[in-house]
Amino acid sequence: MIENRPILSFLSHLIMIVGVVLVAFPLWITFVAASHDEQRMTELPLPLLPGGHFFENLDIALNQGLWGGDGTGVGFMLFNSLIMALMISIGKIAISLLSAFAIVYFRFPFRMGFFWMIFVTLMLPVEVRILPTFEVVANLGMLNNYWGLSIPLIASATATFMFRQVFLTIPDELLEAARIDGAGPLRFFKDILLPMSQTNIAALFVIMFIFGWNQYLWPLLVTTDQDMFTIVMQIGKLLEGGEEAPQWHITMMTTLLAVIPPVIVVIFMQRLFVQGLTETEK
């Protein structure tokens, strides 16, 4: 502490609290809306405190969906989102670990060529190549299944760079020792590199899980079959469909269901999350 100015400290806390409340307000309102019945959600002004219909709404959202909709809840969409997020995050980590290992520990023709090919993916977000990527996926018969939802997104320059960075800090003596003991490349990878990059893998997993769960445009493109919808893309559809007769209590319950899993991951794995965020941006 530089100086003791009680008024300034008080002011700092005050501003922080106002900030926290403003940032949290939308989520609080969503929770409140998800806990009232339809009747209450049409009366002005809307409630600021939670009501008693939370679990009833949860049941409707999960198992029945909107009234006047097609009667499908979003339970299976949560499951789809989970599978997609896991496939994307695990896939990204797996293939990036392997390619970083090859690039750092082997000398082979086209090594730098491969490195630059991976680098270029940084500059090609899905938004700039929507139609042709969709065509490729359609031609491979990957529409409306988990492969199509995840595989096209698992190439990762950031993850490859991060693992490259991690491997470069591992002392060469370890490799020499491993070779003297007769370990081959795969053995070295499995018994030394993997255990040594554990926290990096975990940190990356947190970031990539959130990335995967929050995908919106890509699932919108490759799924037409409702069975494969994800919870996040369903939000867009509910808002669109709710133009005439909005059922805010169900819409907001669905939003809450889409928001809670990744938020829980961030809050409970905060240290890993911060580490992952800062490592992947370098």
Binding site: G19, V20, V23, A24, F25, P26, L27, I29, T30, A33, M41, T42, L44, L46, I210, W213, N214, Y216, V232, M233, I235, G236, L238, L239, P246, W248, T251, M252, T255, A258, V259, P262, V263, V265, V266, I267, Q270, F273, V274, L277
Partner: peptide, 26 residues
């Protein structure tokens, strides 16, 4: 902790949160 969680909210879900607060009718 109380400030970093919005990072995890999907853009579309963030849209829904704010859409609701600013809905012209309710």
């Amino acid at each position: 902790t109380l400030l970093i969680w919005p990072y995890a909210v999907a853009p579309a879900a963030a849209g829904a949160l704010w859409f609701f607060i600013f809905d012209p009718t309710v």
